[in-house]
Amino acid sequence: MKNDLVLRVIGKLLIPFILLFALYVQFHGDFGPGGGFQAGVIIAAGIIFYALIHGVATTRRIVPDCLVETMLASGVLIYAGVGLAGLLFGGNYLDYFVLDPNPVLGQHRGIFWVEVGVATTVSGVMLKIYYMFASRSGSED
């Protein structure tokens, strides 16, 4: 589909907005519908859209496998790290109240980092799954 002019132009127009919308969903999740899961899936969907138009090989150069695999693991580590940070500041595991002198701000900080971790893992896993299926079909056809 690399030579389809309509797809390429529309893709170039849409993909930045898809990624921007994902960031909006991620960081506005406290005030409206949204959060880490949705943002991660939308980021993955934007990149998969790019891969459908320009091919998996091109996408693998821009978003390499090692980056995706690092995302996959680091999201869980960020989440667990927030829990450990709660322990270090003298609270319980995953206790956000101690993360800041002001307990409510501490909650906000904890929720923010937890959502970042969730989004990282989810988008990494979704992208990795897509890469796996796409590279299989590429090698056989």
Partner: peptide, 20 residues
């Protein structure tokens, strides 16, 4: 249910991989 949906798609992908 929010968490169930995301876990659901992960297991669906695992099942598809097994099918492949």
């Amino acid at each position: 249910i929010l968490t169930a949906i995301v876990v659901g798609v992960a297991t669906l992908a695992l099942g598809l991989a097994l099918a492949v």
